[in-house]
Design a protein around this nucleic acid. Structure first.
Length: 376
RNA sequence: GGGGAUGUUGUCCAGCGGCAACGACAAGAGACUGUAAAUCUCUCCUCUUUCGAGUUCGGUGGUUCGAGUCCACCCAUCCCCA
């Protein structure tokens, strides 16, 4: 993997860059659709590529490890072949499941013990074996195993948690460097900054992560219960320390506004379930703000979903029709909403990149932040 | 003509003397941030922000401190036998 920083904004910390992988190029800032189980829910690979214009998608180690399992993934020749996505893939390590499945896991020095949410079977994830699993999945970007600390954790917990994450990081890196990719293309390993909402811990973690000199770095443990302003503050603390010539990935974030605010603070990569999950639940992100398409007011609005939308669904279907589909629980409704939202997210970061290169990002962002917050 | 069953708040339905009345669905609104989410939450007789108040269970009378629940008659619907 290789990152080229092409433009640095003068008015903000925003950057435009380009990541080269063996599965192709990624222009940053970038949003990466989430495909937990190897599928971006409701969206075909062709739609992702041709309509949404996704450049890289996510997979999840925990979920793919449980199903279909390593043997199938190995025999398939990796996830790219399995799900017919020939562009880059990034896999989360299972660190988020340490957070979201908190009731079904136990942390030890060795790793995270999970009780499968599917059949209750017990599994141990270690910093080493999640690297092996991600090698088997064939991810272009492999994430370190971390503890995604809740945003409400107290200082002592956050500190201990961070120290564990750091020890796990050293083990993960060592193991990554001692192993080889399985399918003939290169893989890279991103460490993750934690530290909850504590500036000194964040700074300490950023220093630690930066010292590992990996090809890219991630910021985790944000948008997990803390106020948005605190999240922005943490990003500032961390990005002041993380190297400028490496891409910075803010994990799991966020709303369109979160993304613009983070771009302006120097973040290059994002992923979030919002466009797909919220889309399935009737929330549409548009250039003019947020639409709850389930609301009665759309019942007889036959105008395009979004006249200047990014994908074919925007002008092929009307708001009234999408309202109808979602209200009726029709699968097509979820698909249309997901394609629309993902198309919007990708268009948003593409436009951000353009504005950065033009030197107009700051003003544009200020306008957008107001516009995107509107409820239509 | 004879016998039997049933009528409950949008719909289906529960309710067997203390009830503004269970549940499901529908409807309206909200939530959702490295996906245990095509999920979850709230509202859903009227008025009130809350407390609460006022009207309700096919109809009319009655028994009772108290009736959707018990009794009488009436009305309507369904089933069976003629």
């Amino acid at each position: 993997m290789q990152f080229t920083l092409e433009h640095t904004d003068t008015a903000t910390d925003a950057r435009a860059g380009r990541i080269m992988t063996d599965h192709g190029e990624i222009l940053t800032p970038i949003f990466m659709p989430v495909g937990t189980l190897g599928s971006v829910k409701g969206v075909h690979a062709t739609e992702l590529k041709d309509e949404v214009k996704a450049q890289i998608i996510l997979g999840n180690t925990y979920h793919l490890y449980l199903r279909p399992g390593l043997q199938t993934l190995r025999e398939a020749g990796g996830l790219h072949k399995f799900n017919s996505w020939d562009k880059p893939i990034l896999t989360d390590s299972g660190g988020f499941q340490v957070f979201s499945l908190a009731d079904n896991r136990k942390l030890t020095e060795e790793g995270a013990k999970f009780k499968s949410h599917i059949d209750g079977s017990k599994h141990l994830f270690t910093p080493e074996n999640v690297v092996d699993t991600q090698r088997i999945i064939g991810a272009d970007i492999i994430m370190a195993l971390d503890e995604c600390t809740p945003g409400t954790a107290d200082y002592n917990y956050a500190k201990k948690s961070l120290e564990l994450t750091h020890r796990w990081l050293d083990r993960g890196i060592k193991h990554f460097d001692e192993t080889e990719p399985l399918y003939g293309y290169s893989q890279t390993f991103f460490p993750i900054v934690q530290g909850c909402t504590y500036k000194d811990l964040r700074a300490q973690s950023a220093e630690f992560v930066a010292s590992k000199e990996r090809e890219g770095n991630a910021i985790g443990g944000l948008a997990v219960g803390e106020p948005e302003e605190v999240m922005y503050e943490m990003i500032e603390v961390v990005n002041a320390i993380l190297p400028k010539d490496k891409p910075r990935y803010l994990m799991g974030v966020g709303t369109p506004i979160n993304i613009l605010e983070a771009i302006s603070r120097g973040v290059d990569m994002f992923d979030c379930v919002m466009p797909t999950r919220n889309g399935r639940n009737g929330m549409l992100f548009t250039w003019d703000g947020i639409i709850n398409i389930k609301n009665k007011k759309w019942e007889n609005d036959f105008s395009a979903i979004e006249t200047n939308g990014a994908t074919f669904v925007d002008t092929t279907y009307s708001k009234a029709y999408l309202h109808h589909l979602i209200k009726c629980g029709e699968m097509l409704g979820a698909q249309i909403a997901s394609i629309h939202n993902l198309g919007f997210y990708l268009a948003l970061v593409t436009e951000a990149r353009k504005q950065i290169i033009n030197g107009t990002f700051r003003e544009w962002k200020q306008r957008m932040v107001i516009q995107l917050a509107q409820r239509i």
